[in-house]
């Protein structure tokens, strides 16, 4: 059976791709952000996972309001990155782990998750940037299964529902007939708001409490409704749902987790950026 060895979580922002492209990692603005990643890169270098299951939210690249899914699971052999409207250079395609995709799809539908399956799927910066941040040299030596969670159009799935999804994904990984090592990854958050008179809103106290909760009390944030989360974390801060799904998956792999590393830096663009890595204990 496959082994779920740990979990990762990171913020994503298009500007990060630009900074990587321009080699600005050590510029004063960017250094406190990029400095967070080497410990996680080293951990990954030692652990050598084969597959990343990526919880992320599409930003209007692959999905539009004509067919807006709540949860969408990729089942493609290859995922292409593409122009999201800003002409930022795209990353090379990523290889899909199709067997695991179908393992997850079968498990989820079997547990009454009404997912969309995607045999063709463009992946945006939210899916690609974490892989570049964790494996900065060349192409990431992993295959992927992208799982998209709607943060674009309300009603969003509740935090509770997302947590349940993550658990089911964890169970699917554990039951996968494979000798591969898997990590789950969350891409999104932490608190930020791009739109409205409250643009630029950040909530450090909440973010830190949320990061702490993931270590030992992972269901803490499932008490909040979507509007609670908007109020506390901003309209795009709800992307922390990805972190919940990731952590829920880990909860199925062992009785507890060990925090490998974390970083928190304000601001990059309009965002409070967070980074965490967990090992199954």
């Amino acid at each position: 059976m496959a082994q779920l060895i740990g979990g990762l979580a990171t913020s994503h922002i298009p500007a990060i791709g630009n900074a990587i492209h321009k080699g600005l990692q050590n510029a004063p603005y960017w250094a406190p952000f990029f400095a967070g990643y080497p410990p996680v890169q080293q951990w990954l270098g030692a652990q050598k996972p084969d597959v990343v299951v990526m919880f992320y939210n599409d930003h209007g690249l692959n999905f539009f309001l004509d067919k807006m899914p709540t949860f969408a699971v990729g089942a493609a052999a290859q995922y292409n990155n593409a122009d999201e409207g800003w002409g930022i250079p795209t990353l090379p395609p990523f290889k899909g782990e199709v067997d695991l995709s179908w393992q997850i799809i079968n498990t989820l539908v079997g547990q009454d998750f009404d997912i969309v399956t995607c045999q063709d799927m463009l992946v945006d910066h939210a899916c690609t940037l974490p892989l570049k941040l964790f494996w900065p040299e060349g192409e990431a030596p992993v295959t992927i299964v992208p799982i998209n969670i709607n943060t674009v159009q309300f009603p969003l799935p509740s935090a509770k529902r997302v947590y349940a999804l993550g658990k089911a994904v964890g169970e699917a990984i554990a039951a996968w007939d494979s000798s591969k090592k898997v990590v789950v990854c969350a891409s999104g958050g932490l608190s930020h708001q791009l739109d409205g008179e409250r643009a630029g809103f950040i909530n450090k106290a909440f973010d830190l409490q949320f990061m702490d909760s993931l270590v030992s009390n992972p269901e803490w944030a499932t008490q909040f409704s979507t509007l609670d989360l908007v109020e506390k974390t901003g309209t795009q801060g709800v992307e922390l749902l990805m972190w919940l799904a990731m952590r829920a998956a880990l909860s199925t792999a062992g009785p507890s987790v060990k925090e490998v590393h974390r970083n928190y830096h304000i601001p990059i663009s309009n965002t409070a950026t967070g980074l965490m890595a967990f090992e199954v204990a």
Binding site: D83, G85, F154, G196, E197, T226, E231
Partner: peptide, 28 residues
């Protein structure tokens, strides 16, 4: 929620054409 407009069904209806145009801007 102060200074905040959740993009719910009412907004999604109202904004469909505008958002569809913006979605098209993925293409150069």
């Amino acid at each position: 929620i102060e200074g905040t407009t959740p993009f719910d069904g009412d907004m999604a209806r109202k904004g469909y054409a505008l958002n569809k145009m913006c979605f098209s801007f993925n293409s150069a």
